[in-house]
Nucleic acid binder design. Sequence first.
DNA 1: GTGAAAGCGCTAACAT
DNA 2: ATGTTAGCGCTTTCAC
Lengths: 340, 340
Amino acid sequence: MEERNYTIRDISRLAKVSRGTVDRVIHKRGKVSPEAIEKVTKVLKEINYKPNLLARSLKSHKHNRIAAIIPHYQEDSYWQKCVNGIKKGEEEFKAFGGTINYYTYDKTKADYEQAFDKVLKDKPDAVLVAPIYYRESLPLFRKLEDLDIPYVLINTPIENANYKSFIGQDYWKSGRVAAQLMDLLLPGKGDVLIIHVEEDFENSTHLHRKEEGFRSYFTEKNKNRTIHTFTLHGEPPDFSPLQDAIASARGMFITTSKASVLRRYVENEAIRIVGYDLTPENIEFLKNGKIDMLIHQNPHQQAYDGISFLSELLLYKKEPEYRKLLPIDIVTSENVDCYL
Amino acid sequence: MEERNYTIRDISRLAKVSRGTVDRVIHKRGKVSPEAIEKVTKVLKEINYKPNLLARSLKSHKHNRIAAIIPHYQEDSYWQKCVNGIKKGEEEFKAFGGTINYYTYDKTKADYEQAFDKVLKDKPDAVLVAPIYYRESLPLFRKLEDLDIPYVLINTPIENANYKSFIGQDYWKSGRVAAQLMDLLLPGKGDVLIIHVEEDFENSTHLHRKEEGFRSYFTEKNKNRTIHTFTLHGEPPDFSPLQDAIASARGMFITTSKASVLRRYVENEAIRIVGYDLTPENIEFLKNGKIDMLIHQNPHQQAYDGISFLSELLLYKKEPEYRKLLPIDIVTSENVDCYL
DNA sequence: GTGAAAGCGCTAACAT
DNA sequence: ATGTTAGCGCTTTCAC
């Protein structure tokens, strides 16, 4: 039981080499004879050496800077929660001598690219990014890679990028979950609408995946429901495309956080609504029964995990999980409070 | 932006005293002249000093030991998950030079007390405990307090104890959630049974609270359903008390992890079942539709958080949250995978 | 009451 | 190729 942790000094004694050599072997910095390498690695294995991370990072104590690139959050409760998660991580990161700089972007591609450029100029030690634009992201990521700056993605996965970690949800599965809930809410039959409220729908792969998941559930279970898809644009959205379909529909699956907006538009009180995200208005409607179910994407946790991963990477050189898929939380009026 | 962190040395220079004096002031260890105290505190305020936690804990590197007191887990998937959570925390804790010792107890009070005694003899630096016995716990906790050993509770809250933190669920609320789900699963009418499978029901306050929450939902919503409660004993449980009620019941709420056991007993395939915990058999039945919904108590997270809290307390003297209530996760066949 | 100095474990620069 | 050593920031012991 008395398993004191071995130190570099212990290893050097056991392997009968100097501390410097041990360090060189551990970090593969070369200039070591094969025999020495062998002796040291042997000891390393035998004792199952775990370096003292505290000491390691104390030594290399440079003032680490993380850049966080996220959409403007002042008027957006989803991204506000994300910022809260970052702030929570920042607290801890600060105590170890780091800082986080925020680079927010207006929801336009140009602004996104501009924010990114600023980051590239500032050369931080690591980057956390919520990249809502797919196509535009890849070339920007390449630049980070050229500068050897590690980066972590949250919320939106971008394929073919060499990020250290992606933290978010399996969107296809979340669509399946939504379908199951809808099915439960509408026993028997009843038409359902899938509604995307998003300007740049083509470029929003995650919404496509939600829809695919949703439809796959009914296909697989051989439930024949009529399902129509609509994409709405504008702020506030132009509802006219819905006009005809809404009369016969008994349920709506809203793939963005706009469930409450649709709820206000639709007069039929009995229509069942499943949506995403715990925005204040969504919560209000959930509590008074006007929205039935919400799926929680946990922006707070995503951001916090992202910062944690990066701090551990910078401080202790600990490699993060490549993909962290957060659970697909089902939220009702009864359990909503514990997700806030 | 160039906010380098100040060090003790900086402060000593600014206040024109020695590093030792600065340290004595910071830690209020006395033997300092009033003038020195004043000079130092003034500087401290001006620069908003944040000690480098890394260095602090590197120095005071005593080999920290945490004791984990939990029920035997070899044949119990719930407590196995708890152990996994501890193990995950242990990984990190080890890297900072700590160890965790396990003290498991057979599900009897005597064994619980015995395990506790062993802990008291070993005098660890901190204790994580899952105290399934209410009445027996308090005097044992007092002994920890006498020894000034901080302890954290998971799973079961014990009132009037001076624990550093409780991590678990709001059981009353989880009963409410179960009720809402049951209501959704049984549109309109249908009798429901509440079933406790527990030897020492009287001493299990958390089960009472689940029942209260469950009933309160229906009362509050003015849904008049017939609800009967049964408590089963024995291993395997003696089902005879159920015999009469089961024929007319359309739903069962099982307050422990034994949903699958009841599922196997009841012949009526159509009966709706809401239970707790992701045991392998529960998961199997959930996936093939024989159980409808499960509530996840997240033992893994509870344990992990508990260890994290204690390590941070020991390493950095960081006080944990007094109560951390984990979300009441609703689990269905579609989202179960992301909770595993 | 105060200051000087050693040392926690690891890293990297500098000798050899 | 290998060994030695200074030093990261903090704490604590030991002189004074």
